[in-house]
């Protein structure tokens, strides 16, 4: 069983839950009727499910004849389809108040991402490309120093979440918080990707697309204000 992966996911979800409670206590979700916790969890679960199905199909595995394989998350989750499915689920559940719900979830989404990346400590999966920087970390029994790239991402998202919450309190333009969160999420993954080791180079096109969409969103939301 993949308990370390579950533990990392629990850290992510827990971080999101804390952020939602904190935001609610500050009155940041008062104008939103949807149950934000339900929406957040539904988005995560549907995104994970669709991303896993897409990864299986992409690898030539038929999900219908290999139903049990769907649960093997470590076998791969396609980032792009997962993101699209997750955001689509949020949009469907939010119904008439999509932008308000997206704004209300922005801080929690960043906190969830930060918690998930911090969960690399539980999975023993924080390290990336070799480096000589003073804060380089090595695997147990290894002399090779490496970028703790997942901790970079965790730090970025966990710092960005409260900063965005403070920013949101002062700038009430609808849509800005959601677009900014997407910009930080996609941009954060884009700038840390070169420090990760992978076979495929990572889904940088999806991250780049996310940055472009987010920038358009920030500009449009700011102009409307």
């Amino acid at each position: 069983m993949e308990f370390t992966l579950l533990f990392a996911a629990a850290i992510g979800v827990g971080s999101g839950a804390i952020a939602l409670r904190w935001e609610a206590a500050r009155g940041n979700a008062a104008d939103c009727a949807a149950d934000l916790w339900d929406v957040l969890i539904s988005g995560l679960v549907v995104g994970l499910f669709v991303g896993r199905l897409a990864a299986m199909v992409g690898a030539g595995i038929n999900p219908l004849t290999s139903l049990g394989d769907i649960l093997i998350i470590r076998g791969g989750v396609a980032t792009g389809p997962a993101t699209v499915a997750g955001l689509s689920t949020v949009a469907v559940l939010a119904r008439g108040e999509i932008v308000a719900v997206a704004d209300a979830l922005a801080v929690a989404a960043l906190a969830t991402l930060g918690g998930w990346h911090l969960g690399c400590l539980a999975r023993d999966a924080c390290l990336g490309t070799p480096t000589d920087v003073p804060w380089a970390m090595a695997q147990a029994g290894s002399q090779v120093g490496r970028h703790p790239v997942e901790l970079y991402a965790a730090a970025l998202f966990l710092v960005a979440a409260p900063v965005l919450a403070l920013y949101r309190k002062r700038h009430i333009a609808t849509g800005v918080a959601a677009s900014t969160a997407l910009l930080i999420a996609a941009g954060g993954r884009l700038v840390t990707e070169p420090y990760r080791l992978s076979l495929s180079g990572g889904p940088v096109w999806w991250y780049g697309l996310g940055v472009v969409v987010a920038l358009v969103g920030v500009v449009m939301a700011s102009r409307r204000a």
């Binding site: 993949e2 093997i72 470590r74 999966a125 390290l127 290894s142 090779v144 490496r146 080791l197 992978s198």
Partner: peptide, 18 residues
């Protein structure tokens, strides 16, 4: 257990560096 892409790439890199 099942190995993921990042872990495989990291461990192969460790072998090559060593």
């Amino acid at each position: 257990g099942v190995i993921d892409e990042r872990t495989l790439a990291l461990e192969v890199d460790e072998l090559v560096q060593a």
